[in-house]
């Protein structure tokens, strides 16, 4: 985890990235390298550019300036038709879960391997496996609106890992959850990290960072303020 150009073989590289919304600068001259198998928190106050940074990575929006490389792919050069294939490198988790309310838990999770063209048997096996991992196997036939917030987010985590992504992007995944549910979600993400995955988690929850550990990217008004370890956050908070 470094500023751009200093790490070799980084999984994600940002070179002087800018993002503007009209006259407003959401990200300013951001350069960053994130290596494989890192657990990185993106933190900062509201409006710091945390969500914008994640959106740029999965091409939810294009950067206004600068270059972003994900696993060697230059996002500026990816044609629109290839964007779905880029997104299969990511498992994305949102604060509001973004589950399809008319589809069952199983169907929501199965959407990812289905979209990737997996065969029926493999989909069945994979979905059962990830639902077991997040402890939601017994709710496979439930519809999302019948679940609690914590359960919905566990389904979202299951969906995020169902496609065997290289990277998980989590945007304030615990913001609307109670402490116990939040801990379960973080533990699941840690499990993904332990198995070799890379996690980028946007949050302004200092307690969550302290509890989890890892690297922390501090943003303020769209600019990279500093990169620290989680323990450094503890030291500053003391």
């Amino acid at each position: 985890m470094n500023t751009a150009g200093t790490a070799k073989g980084a999984l994600i590289r940002l070179f002087h990235v800018h993002k503007r919304y009209g006259p407003k600068n959401a990200l300013v001259d951001l350069s960053l390298d994130i290596a494989k198998n890192e657990f990185v928190f993106i933190t900062g106050p509201s409006g710091a550019g945390k969500t914008t940074l994640l959106k740029l990575l999965y091409l939810g929006e294009p950067a206004s300036e600068g270059q972003i490389l994900v696993d060697g792919m230059n996002l500026a050069r990816i044609p629109a038709k290839r964007i779905p294939f880029l997104r299969r490198n990511f498992g994305i988790i949102f604060q509001d879960y973004k589950l399809i309310p008319t589809k069952t838990v199983f169907e929501n999770v199965a959407l990812v391997p289905e979209a990737a063209g997996a065969k029926f048997r493999i989909i069945q096996k994979k979905v059962r496996s990830v639902l077991r991992t997040v402890g939601m196997e017994d709710k496979a036939d439930a519809l999302p609106p019948s679940l609690s917030g914590g359960e919905q987010q566990r389904v979202a985590v299951a969906r995020a890992v169902a496609g065997d992504p290289k990277i998980i992007l989590a945007d304030e995944p615990t913001a609307s959850l109670d402490e116990d549910s939040a801990r379960i979600i973080v533990d699941l993400l840690k499990g993904f990290h332990v198995r070799g995955g890379t996690v980028l988690l946007a949050t302004h929850d200092r307690h969550l960072i302290l509890q989890t550990g890892g690297q922390v990217v501090h943003l303020r008004q769209g600019k990279l303020e500093r990169i620290t370890s989680a323990s450094a956050v503890r030291d500053r908070s003391c």
Partner: peptide, 16 residues
Amino acid sequence: RQEVEIMRLVGATDGF
């Protein structure tokens, strides 16, 4: 539209 948006986010192609 929300469902379509979610499908796009999880890597579904327009054809799918």
